[in-house]
């Protein structure tokens, strides 16, 4: 564990807590993409298959349980509890256009042609594009609530911090995972235009409004 990875995990934790607070306080899921949350649930389920079989640390297990638990709770809030406020018309990204290519790529490009490794690779590739339905929804509605902007900033920062973690681990431990790094770079790049809007607008107290 290193400071970059710890900050990354805390940023990821903060993003999920911000999202849950937004939904619980406003009792609304307006502006939140249910499809992205379903993709995140798929990512965590595919990635944490070893949750009950290999114990790494209390921290590792607690975080995995928290991430899996909260993402399914988020889906429950979107599609059941606060269903009336879910904007399905704007959450129209065709996720099959993500899942099929990502699934195919996981079969072709992986570290080892073994079931667990391919499923893990699938979760890494899927996570890098899982935010697209959410960003697509914001571009369709033309604006994002400030709290949603904070959620996205924390979520985007988490993988950017993981990139720093991988740089550190390369020099400190000689650890290098090309698949995770490339997917992490793609994932962080997808947030760049949002980061720009966040820093130039939200930091000055304005709302984010994209040219619809």
């Amino acid at each position: 564990m290193n400071i970059f990875r710890l900050c990354g995990d805390m940023s990821h934790l903060a993003a999920i807590i911000i999202l849950l607070l937004k939904m619980w306080k406003t009792r609304s899921v307006a502006g939140i993409s249910g499809k992205s949350q379903i993709l995140f649930a798929t990512v965590f389920t595919a990635r944490y298959l070893d949750l009950f079989t290999s114990f790494i640390s209390i921290y590792n297990t607690c975080m995995k349980v928290f991430f899996i638990g909260t993402v399914y709770f988020t889906i429950y809030l979107i599609y059941m509890k606060f269903k009336a406020t879910y904007d399905s018309n704007h959450d129209s990204f065709r996720v099959e256009f993500l899942i099929v290519p990502v699934g195919g790529l996981a079969f072709l490009v992986n570290h080892e042609f073994a079931p667990l490794e391919i499923i893990w690779t699938f979760s890494i590739y899927l996570e890098s594009v899982a935010i697209l339905p959410q960003l697509f929804m914001i571009s369709k509605t033309g604006e994002a609530e400030t709290i949603t902007s904070h959620y996205l900033f924390a979520l985007g920062s988490y993988r950017a911090l993981y990139l720093c973690n991988w740089i550190y681990r390369y020099y400190a431990e000689g650890f290098f995972d090309l698949i995770a790094v490339v997917a992490g770079v793609v994932q962080t790049i997808l947030y760049c235009d949002f980061f720009y809007l966040y820093i130039t607008k939200v930091m000055k107290g304005k709302k984010i409004s994209l040219p619809a």
């Binding site: 995990d9 990635r47 070893d50 290999s54 590792n60 993981y162 995770a180």
Partner: peptide, 10 residues
């Protein structure tokens, strides 16, 4: 099998 398949990052 799954036991020695370890990914230590979240």
């Amino acid at each position: 099998d799954i036991a020695e398949w370890v990914k230590d990052e979240l």
